[in-house]
């Protein structure tokens, strides 16, 4: 079966105006349609810059020097207009407040829908769908500034989801919220993945929460994509990850240590549930 690429990044380099160094250098990356991609890497490595390039904020809104191309469903981002890009690529900013443009949650969700020309008779249904999926249906009349951090993040996600983009980018969606809020965001991502209707890209330091959802993990380090692999393969080489400032899930590290000492020889677990199952196997003498 032929793979259809949602995103194709070819020999892409970008330098922000007045910056000395290139933020991204010779990046090549392909993301299949309908997949879940987790992007990891240390701070200032270029993850957000890469996402801004896929979204088209680079080069449309941010000035700088560009080389190479970024294509979304075959169309070069550089030559695609804002409304078309908005329809294809949804972007949830790390700081949800940074994306609020209205004074009530309902208007916040509505804004993008009117921009991309969703028919009026369909708008109400989309607002209901997105607000229920993200658990913000009871906040529609509230100002998005007067709600909790987790709620703000869910409103930000709802306002992008309602536009039903082909690609959904979440840039550090759990960085500014409490543990309960984090769980809710992960739950939303899991539900979206289950529908299979969107290509999802999550940039996240907290790999623990998203590793099990990912089809592929991308490591961005010092402006370059240094590894792309399925999560199990990606988290196998802990030494490589440590050299590139990436912390694998704690449960993975624990079982890697056990394996190193000859106490475990199974596949490394990515989630707590997998860890518990592996632990039971160990106790039963099956995993060693």
């Amino acid at each position: 079966m032929t793979v259809r690429w949602a995103v194709e990044v070819e020999d892409f380099s970008w330098r922000y105006q007045q910056a000395r160094e290139f933020a991204l250098r010779d990046v090549n990356l392909k993301i299949p349609e309908g997949s879940f991609t987790l992007v990891v890497g240390p701070n200032e490595s270029g993850k957000t810059t890469l996402m801004l390039a896929i979204k088209g904020l680079i080069p449309h809104s941010l000035p700088g020097t560009l080389r190479g191309t970024v294509r979304v469903f075959g169309q070069p981002v550089e030559h695609t207009s804002a409304p078309v890009l908005a329809k294809r690529v949804g972007y949830v900013f790390g700081d949800p407040e940074a994306q609020f443009t209205a004074l009530t949650v309902e208007e916040e969700i509505l804004f993008g829908l009117e921009n991309i020309g969703v028919p009026e008779e369909e708008i109400g249904e989309r607002i209901r769908w997105a607000s229920e999926l993200t658990m913000v249906a009871d906040l529609l009349d509230k100002p998005p500034y007067d709600i909790s951090g987790g709620q703000k993040q869910r409103v930000a996600i709802a306002s992008v989801l309602a536009m039903r983009p082909d690609i959904l980018i979440l840039d550090e969606p759990t960085s500014m919220i409490d543990p309960l809020g984090k769980d809710q965001v992960v739950q939303i991502c899991a539900e979206l993945k289950a529908t299979g209707s969107m290509t999802i890209i999550v940039v996240e330091h907290n790999v623990e929460a998203f590793a099990h959802l990912a089809d592929q993990v991308v490591l961005v380090y010092r402006g370059q994509v240094v590894r792309v692999a399925p999560p199990r393969e990606f988290f196998e080489d802990l030494e490589f990850l440590a050299q590139h400032d990436v912390s694998p899930p704690q449960v993975t590290t624990l079982f890697a240590l056990l394996r190193e000492r000859g106490l475990y020889n199974g596949a490394l677990p990515l989630t707590d549930d997998e860890g518990i199952a592996a632990g039971w196997q160990l106790l039963a003498g099956e995993g060693s």
Binding site: S61, P83, V84, A86, F93, A98, Q99, G112, I116, M163
Partner: peptide
């Protein structure tokens, strides 16, 4: 931020 947010949601 608002300018980026407007672009991201297709405002022209």
């Amino acid at each position: 931020e608002i300018s980026n947010a407007l672009f991201a949601r297709g405002y022209t």
